Amino acid sequence: MSRVSRPARLLDPGQCLTLRPMAYPAFFEMYRSAIKNTWTVEEVDFSTDVGDLRKMTDAERHLVQRLVAFFATGDSIVANNLVLNLYRHINAPEARMYLSRQLYEEALHVQFYLTLLDTYIPDPEDRHRAFAAVENIPSIRQKADFCMRWLDSVESLGRLDTRAERRRFLLNLICFAACVEGLFFFGAFAYVYFLRSRGLLHGLAAGTSWVFRDESAHMRFAFEVVSTARREEPELFDAGLARSILDMMDEAIACEARFAEDLLGAGVAGMSARDVRRYLEFCADQRLATLGMPKRYGAKNPFSFMDLQDVQEVTNFFERRVSAYQVGVSGEVVLDASF
């Protein structure tokens, strides 16, 4: 009967198909909001970015190379976890409607980064190395290994029958929301907006603003799932789960801090690996607060250009009509920093 009737709790095994009466209207409203905020890659104008790349320093170009190499596979990992784990175990049709929309958005992000790579890195061999970043760039491989370990942690679970299995699932969900989307991607966005504050790569920044908005919505959904599970099964949220979350957060910050040292190791004026770590700790405290946990790091945001970023540019989204999209940009671009 689990195929037609409502389960007692969100993480109960089954395949609920009943949308009325609606048990979790918040998920349905998130789905509706996501539909209203549709955008396309064709609206992003990269026409000035190629010229910006020519006038950047070698250290800045190295930053951009490493950044787009991470972007090339980051959202694909998130999409795999969504399909293999989240959709299977979050047992509410309105929640699965949102997850279906999120999968579309992850594919859209992959298309955006594919177009970004085609525009920024015209040489096929350099582009191949960028797509293979998880294999040949240690700082990116470390982040990918972190993601895959948590993806694999629940992939073998066919059902969430026990408390231990549900805690494993919640840790996977929290990892991808708080650490992958909430730290890895937010750290990457900081580099983009730093470059924009220098008057560089406005096409990248414009597209990233829409990705930023999507990722923020993905986090809100995941944290609403966690909050719902806490209300329905408070016994799942014990001291052991809290310790695991803190250990996970520490490891994610360490991974992203190493990535910052890689990106900024050649010396980029105006940005340091130390400040990036402080920003990551600031973001981590926000994620912990959202989870109802005490702040751990006590860091302040060192990047003024990130203040209120989630409402900048996208506020007037429906008033914008960008049509000068270019992917086949003429001219040669040579990025000398090695992958």
Rank of each mutant, 00 (worst) to 15 (best):
L236T: 08
M219P: 00
R230H: 12
F223C: 03
L246K: 13
A229K: 06
L246I: 10
T228M: 05
S244L: 01
F221N: 03
E232F: 09
A242Q: 10
F237Y: 14
F223I: 04
F223L: 08
I245C: 02
F221V: 02
S227V: 01
A239R: 15
E232S: 06
R231C: 03
L246W: 08
M248D: 05
D238N: 14
F237R: 12
V225W: 13
F223Q: 10
L246F: 10
A222W: 12
L236F: 10
M219T: 00
E224I: 02
L236D: 10
M219Y: 05
E235H: 14
E233H: 08
T228E: 10
M249I: 14
E224Y: 02
D247L: 10
D247I: 06
T228G: 01
A239Q: 15
R243K: 10
R243T: 08
A242H: 13
A229G: 08
A222F: 14
M219H: 00
E224W: 02
E232V: 02
R243Y: 00
E232P: 04
M219C: 03
A229S: 11
L241F: 10
L236M: 14
E224F: 01
E233M: 15
V226N: 01
E233F: 04
T228W: 03
P234K: 13
M219F: 04
L236N: 14
P234M: 13
A222H: 13
E233A: 13
F221L: 01
V226K: 00
A242N: 07
I245Y: 02
E233N: 08
I245M: 03
L236E: 12
M219I: 08
R231F: 05
L241W: 02
A222G: 09
I245R: 03
I245L: 08
L236I: 11
E224A: 15
M248P: 00
L246T: 12
